[in-house]
Amino acid sequence: MPLHNVAHRMNVVLTTAFMFLLVLVAANWLSHFALRAEPRLAVSVAKVNILTREDFLPRLPDMSRKYQPLRRDVANVSLAISMDLTPLFHWNTKMVFVYAYAEWPSKNNAVNQIVLWDAIAQSADDAVLEFPALGAEYRLSDQGFGLRGKTLNLTVVYNRIPHTGPLEWREYPMPSFTMPADYSQ
Protein backbone atom coordinates (compact mmCIF):
# COMPACT_ATOMS: atom_id res chain seq x y z
CA MET A 1 0.00 0.00 0.00
CA PRO A 2 1.45 3.42 -0.97
CA LEU A 3 0.84 5.05 2.42
CA HIS A 4 2.51 2.26 4.22
CA ASN A 5 5.44 2.42 1.87
CA VAL A 6 6.06 6.06 2.79
CA ALA A 7 5.89 5.30 6.51
CA HIS A 8 8.15 2.32 6.08
CA ARG A 9 10.71 4.28 4.11
CA MET A 10 10.68 7.12 6.61
CA ASN A 11 11.28 4.60 9.36
CA VAL A 12 14.31 3.18 7.54
CA VAL A 13 15.71 6.64 6.79
CA LEU A 14 15.29 7.78 10.41
CA THR A 15 16.82 4.62 11.84
CA THR A 16 19.81 4.87 9.52
CA ALA A 17 20.27 8.56 10.36
CA PHE A 18 20.12 7.79 14.06
CA MET A 19 22.67 4.97 13.78
CA PHE A 20 24.95 7.26 11.77
CA LEU A 21 24.64 9.93 14.47
CA LEU A 22 25.55 7.39 17.17
CA VAL A 23 28.67 6.35 15.24
CA LEU A 24 29.64 10.03 14.88
CA VAL A 25 29.17 10.59 18.62
CA ALA A 26 31.37 7.56 19.41
CA ALA A 27 34.06 8.75 16.96
CA ASN A 28 33.89 12.24 18.48
CA TRP A 29 34.40 10.82 21.96
CA LEU A 30 37.31 8.59 20.81
CA SER A 31 39.01 11.56 19.16
CA HIS A 32 39.38 13.15 22.62
CA PHE A 33 42.12 10.65 23.49
CA ALA A 34 44.12 11.77 20.45
CA LEU A 35 43.48 15.49 21.06
CA ARG A 36 43.94 15.61 24.83
CA ALA A 37 46.82 17.73 26.16
CA GLU A 38 48.02 18.68 29.63
CA PRO A 39 46.93 22.08 30.93
CA ARG A 40 49.14 24.15 33.22
CA LEU A 41 47.66 24.57 36.72
CA ALA A 42 49.21 26.24 39.77
CA VAL A 43 47.31 27.34 42.87
CA SER A 44 48.63 28.09 46.34
CA VAL A 45 47.35 29.80 49.46
CA ALA A 46 48.91 33.28 49.44
CA LYS A 47 47.61 34.29 52.86
CA VAL A 48 45.20 33.25 55.59
CA ASN A 49 43.23 36.47 56.00
CA ILE A 50 41.20 35.50 59.01
CA LEU A 51 40.70 32.55 61.31
CA THR A 52 37.87 32.83 63.77
CA ARG A 53 35.19 30.80 65.49
CA GLU A 54 31.42 30.70 65.28
CA ASP A 55 29.61 29.55 68.39
CA PHE A 56 25.88 29.61 68.05
CA LEU A 57 23.45 27.19 69.63
CA PRO A 58 19.76 28.01 69.48
CA ARG A 59 18.42 28.32 73.03
CA LEU A 60 15.09 26.60 72.46
CA PRO A 61 15.16 23.13 70.91
CA ASP A 62 12.48 24.18 68.43
CA MET A 63 14.63 26.97 67.05
CA SER A 64 17.22 24.60 65.59
CA ARG A 65 14.73 23.96 62.79
CA LYS A 66 14.97 27.61 61.83
CA TYR A 67 18.55 28.53 62.71
CA GLN A 68 21.46 26.28 61.95
CA PRO A 69 23.43 25.38 65.09
CA LEU A 70 27.01 26.47 64.33
CA ARG A 71 29.94 25.46 66.45
CA ARG A 72 32.92 25.68 64.19
CA ASP A 73 36.12 27.37 63.11
CA VAL A 74 35.89 29.42 59.95
CA ALA A 75 38.67 30.90 57.88
CA ASN A 76 39.08 33.09 54.85
CA VAL A 77 42.11 32.69 52.62
CA SER A 78 43.60 34.39 49.57
CA LEU A 79 44.79 32.28 46.67
CA ALA A 80 47.54 32.76 44.14
CA ILE A 81 46.22 31.31 40.89
CA SER A 82 48.04 30.83 37.63
CA MET A 83 46.63 28.48 35.01
CA ASP A 84 46.34 27.90 31.32
CA LEU A 85 43.44 25.64 30.38
CA THR A 86 43.74 26.32 26.63
CA PRO A 87 44.99 22.76 25.81
CA LEU A 88 41.70 21.34 27.10
CA PHE A 89 39.65 23.01 24.40
CA HIS A 90 38.90 21.06 21.25
CA TRP A 91 35.78 20.28 19.23
CA ASN A 92 34.23 18.13 21.96
CA THR A 93 34.75 20.55 24.85
CA LYS A 94 31.67 22.54 25.82
CA MET A 95 33.26 24.14 28.87
CA VAL A 96 35.72 23.55 31.69
CA PHE A 97 34.82 23.98 35.35
CA VAL A 98 37.97 24.38 37.43
CA TYR A 99 38.06 24.47 41.24
CA ALA A 100 40.44 24.35 44.20
CA TYR A 101 39.52 22.62 47.43
CA ALA A 102 41.08 22.20 50.87
CA GLU A 103 41.11 18.79 52.54
CA TRP A 104 42.06 17.85 56.10
CA PRO A 105 41.26 15.20 58.68
CA SER A 106 39.89 16.25 62.07
CA LYS A 107 39.12 14.64 65.42
CA ASN A 108 35.64 13.49 64.43
CA ASN A 109 35.90 13.45 60.67
CA ALA A 110 38.13 11.25 58.54
CA VAL A 111 37.65 13.65 55.64
CA ASN A 112 36.71 17.32 55.45
CA GLN A 113 36.59 18.96 52.02
CA ILE A 114 35.64 22.54 51.18
CA VAL A 115 35.70 24.14 47.73
CA LEU A 116 37.48 27.49 48.11
CA TRP A 117 37.34 28.85 44.60
CA ASP A 118 35.90 27.90 41.21
CA ALA A 119 35.86 29.33 37.72
CA ILE A 120 34.25 28.56 34.38
CA ALA A 121 36.04 28.72 31.04
CA GLN A 122 33.74 28.53 28.04
CA SER A 123 36.30 28.88 25.28
CA ALA A 124 40.06 28.92 24.75
CA ASP A 125 39.84 32.74 24.81
CA ASP A 126 38.98 32.90 28.52
CA ALA A 127 41.03 29.88 29.59
CA VAL A 128 44.09 31.73 30.92
CA LEU A 129 43.64 32.71 34.58
CA GLU A 130 46.21 34.81 36.45
CA PHE A 131 45.42 36.09 39.95
CA PRO A 132 48.39 36.86 42.26
CA ALA A 133 46.22 37.24 45.38
CA LEU A 134 42.51 36.53 45.01
CA GLY A 135 40.21 36.41 48.02
CA ALA A 136 38.65 32.94 48.01
CA GLU A 137 35.01 32.87 47.00
CA TYR A 138 33.96 30.50 49.76
CA ARG A 139 34.82 30.37 53.43
CA LEU A 140 36.66 27.44 54.85
CA SER A 141 34.67 25.91 57.69
CA ASP A 142 35.31 23.01 60.02
CA GLN A 143 32.85 20.87 61.95
CA GLY A 144 34.10 21.75 65.43
CA PHE A 145 37.07 23.82 66.59
CA GLY A 146 40.04 22.11 65.01
CA LEU A 147 41.53 24.51 62.48
CA ARG A 148 44.15 26.28 64.69
CA GLY A 149 47.65 25.24 63.65
CA LYS A 150 46.28 22.61 61.26
CA THR A 151 47.99 21.81 57.96
CA LEU A 152 45.54 21.42 55.08
CA ASN A 153 46.02 19.87 51.66
CA LEU A 154 45.18 21.91 48.59
CA THR A 155 44.04 20.29 45.36
CA VAL A 156 43.06 21.72 41.99
CA VAL A 157 40.63 19.84 39.76
CA TYR A 158 39.35 20.47 36.30
CA ASN A 159 35.99 19.11 35.21
CA ARG A 160 35.68 19.04 31.42
CA ILE A 161 32.10 19.05 30.15
CA PRO A 162 31.96 17.64 26.60
CA HIS A 163 29.24 18.23 24.04
CA THR A 164 28.54 14.50 24.20
CA GLY A 165 30.33 11.76 26.09
CA PRO A 166 31.70 11.07 29.55
CA LEU A 167 32.39 13.95 31.93
CA GLU A 168 36.05 14.18 32.89
CA TRP A 169 37.62 15.04 36.26
CA ARG A 170 41.40 15.32 36.83
CA GLU A 171 43.05 16.18 40.14
CA TYR A 172 46.38 17.96 40.71
CA PRO A 173 47.86 18.13 44.23
CA MET A 174 49.14 21.59 45.18
CA PRO A 175 51.37 22.74 48.07
CA SER A 176 49.68 22.33 51.47
CA PHE A 177 49.19 25.31 53.81
CA THR A 178 49.12 25.80 57.55
CA MET A 179 46.58 27.72 59.62
CA PRO A 180 47.75 30.26 62.23
CA ALA A 181 48.27 28.86 65.73
CA ASP A 182 45.62 31.15 67.17
CA TYR A 183 42.50 33.07 66.16
CA SER A 184 42.84 36.43 64.42
CA GLN A 185 42.40 39.50 66.59
Binding site: F97, P105, N109, Q113, I114, V115, S141, Q143
Partner: peptide
Protein backbone atom coordinates in the same frame (compact mmCIF):
# COMPACT_ATOMS: atom_id res chain seq x y z
CA UNK B 1 27.54 20.16 42.55
CA UNK B 2 28.94 19.16 45.97
CA UNK B 3 30.83 22.10 47.51
CA UNK B 4 31.36 20.95 51.13
CA UNK B 5 31.81 17.51 52.57
CA UNK B 6 32.45 16.07 56.04
CA UNK B 7 32.85 12.32 56.46
CA UNK B 8 32.48 11.01 60.00
CA UNK B 9 35.32 8.94 61.41
CA UNK B 10 33.10 6.68 63.52
CA UNK B 11 30.03 6.07 61.34
CA UNK B 12 31.40 6.85 57.88
CA UNK B 13 28.32 9.01 57.31
CA UNK B 14 28.84 11.98 54.99
CA UNK B 15 27.42 15.48 55.40
CA UNK B 16 27.12 17.20 52.02
CA UNK B 17 26.36 20.73 50.95
CA UNK B 18 25.51 21.37 47.29
CA UNK B 19 25.30 24.40 45.00
CA UNK B 20 24.25 25.07 41.41
CA UNK B 21 27.09 26.42 39.24
Amino acid sequence: RIVSLHESRSSGKVDLLTKGD
